[in-house]
Amino acid sequence: MVPLSPLLLSETQAGSIAILVHKMQISLNQEHSRQYQSWFIKGIIMGLRENLGLETVRRLELRRLITATPDMLVRDAIQLMRKHDIGCVVVVDEEGKPDGIFTESLLRHLILSGSSFLDEPLKGHMADRCPWVKMTDPIQTVLEAMQINNIRFICVVDEEGKACALTGQKGLMEYIAEHYPRVVMVQRITPIKPVHKREGA
């Protein structure tokens, strides 16, 4: 990998492109490099759409991952989620690889079934398929996964496939907002309250 000057992206080497974006070196595989090579040559990069394909999941504001074992009681998992104010726990196997996920939307369905589920293990109530992306995948993958699967949380795994972080809708929104600071970040969040008393004299 050859370090390049910031924002000067035109180097191709051994089927991969090395770029420096926001002081981060990102290595793209050959498939992606072909797709974006023409953009580099034309010099039309750094828009959101291009960055979604170029920048990796590592660039997102990742959240701390809360993990559980399949034998953990649902009650304990809820306590964990409450403690960390997070909407899911990722269930991992002995090797730390994602094995399932338990989310607050699954919990919503359980609530009406009576309180007995609270003292049952997670493995009977979790979603068996935990959506995940690699740390080196393009951010576009997260957007597509959220849209296709209609999900909120995506587990991030390292090179060995071990669960290491969490991302999802909030991380993606923050990333997109960063690209349009003048239209998004300056927006007043709280509504303007009417003035009840006359100001001044």
């Binding site: 909030k170 923050e174 927006q187 969040i189």
Partner: peptide
């Protein structure tokens, strides 16, 4: 953009 701001900054879904 304002709706996006509420989601990104305040964290409401």
């Amino acid at each position: 953009a304002k709706a996006l701001s509420v989601m990104a900054v305040a964290g409401y879904r």
